[in-house]
């Protein structure tokens, strides 16, 4: 039995040491990475956020739809695949205090009214868990931390090691000319796939009971408060959708944000009267052409309203 205990201690000690060596090595390597979605884009944002004037946040729809270069020369699109309210709100809270900045937050009603929303998307920031107190506390707040993370810090880099190495050796793009906006050039295959999905009739059931999730509401309120206290102009918007359904949700979101005194613009039906397959990659993502038309419209609106 003594030998078994010794073996367990040996495994714990060895794995703890190896873990720390791996963790600090990956820290060093990842700091040099400025391309790629999971690490590079986040690094670039953290390096540049204090000097930016306009920043867009939100899901992949924000990432692919908002051409921030049309809004300001010093701008960045921090929209990210798979991210949602928790991820975006945490990043907003990292902005510098008292610097005048415009925060454009892309929001979709589906997440706001999802009663099961648990802030899981904040895991996208886990690579900075042991390096940024705000990120750590936001992750802990929604209990999205892994208990093993207290012992094994390399968990911060779970699933990211190959991406870091790849982007270190061969960056996807030159970060100096990258502003976070990723337009989608639709290939012929993607076009065919989209056409075939349109032929399928999805039976979508809209929920009858539309109530904002507690967590979603908290995130929106906390961002509003942060912006008010730190000289930021907050604008929330929903970008176009090929065929907006469950319109009640959009209406309810509009009412909710109005009540909170937040500027909100619903563009979900932007292309409805003048639609074309060329504007889309799929039902929720615009093509470069569609995104360009939408971004132009945003620019006009923001100029008219004196936001930019």
């Amino acid at each position: 039995m003594k030998k078994a205990l010794k073996l367990v201690v040996l495994i714990l000690v060895l794995s703890f040491i190896v873990d720390k060596v791996v963790y600090y090595s990956l820290n060093k390597l990842s700091d040099k990475v400025l391309s790629g979605q999971a690490i590079g884009k986040l690094n670039q944002y953290l390096f540049q956020k204090d000097d930016l004037n306009v920043i867009a946040y939100g899901t992949s729809r924000a990432n692919h739809h908002i051409d921030v270069s049309l809004l300001d020369t010093s701008s960045f699109n921090m929209g990210m695949d798979g991210s949602s309210l928790a991820y975006s709100s945490t990043l907003i809270k990292l902005l510098p205090k008292n610097k005048k900045q415009t925060v454009i937050w892309h929001i979709d009603p589906k997440k706001v009214f999802d009663s099961n929303y648990d802030g899981e998307d904040i895991k996208g920031l886990v690579s900075k868990y042991h390096r940024n107190d705000i990120i750590q506390s936001e992750i802990n707040k929604v209990k999205q931390n892994n208990p093993l993370q207290l012992f094994y810090w390399s968990i911060d880099y779970n699933g990211k090691a190959f991406g870091i190495l790849k982007n270190l050796i061969r960056p996807n793009y030159d970060f100096k000319t990258y502003n976070g906006y990723d337009p989608i050039n639709v290939s012929q295959t993607q076009k065919e796939i989209f056409e075939s999905t349109l032929e399928k009739k999805d039976a979508v059931e809209c929920p009858e009971d539309i109530n904002a999730s507690f967590l979603a509401k908290e995130y929106i309120k906390s961002v509003k408060l942060f912006c008010e206290q730190n000289n930021k102009t907050l604008v929330m918007l929903t970008s176009p959708t090929y065929n907006p359904i469950c319109k009640e949700q959009y209406l309810k979101l509009e009412q909710m944000l109005k009540k909170l005194n937040i500027n909100y613009y619903n563009y979900s039906e932007f292309f409805i009267s003048n639609n074309s397959l060329n504007y889309w990659k799929d039902k929720t993502h615009l093509s470069t052409k569609g995104a360009s038309l939408f971004s132009e419209a945003l620019k006009t609106l923001f100029t008219e309203k004196g936001i930019i």
Partner: peptide, 17 residues
């Protein structure tokens, strides 16, 4: 055995889904 299991643990931590 100690080294092998430790390596497996670190690989698991880095790459688990």
């Amino acid at each position: 055995l100690g080294v092998s299991v430790s390596i497996i643990i670190i690989l698991t931590i880095l790459f688990y889904s």
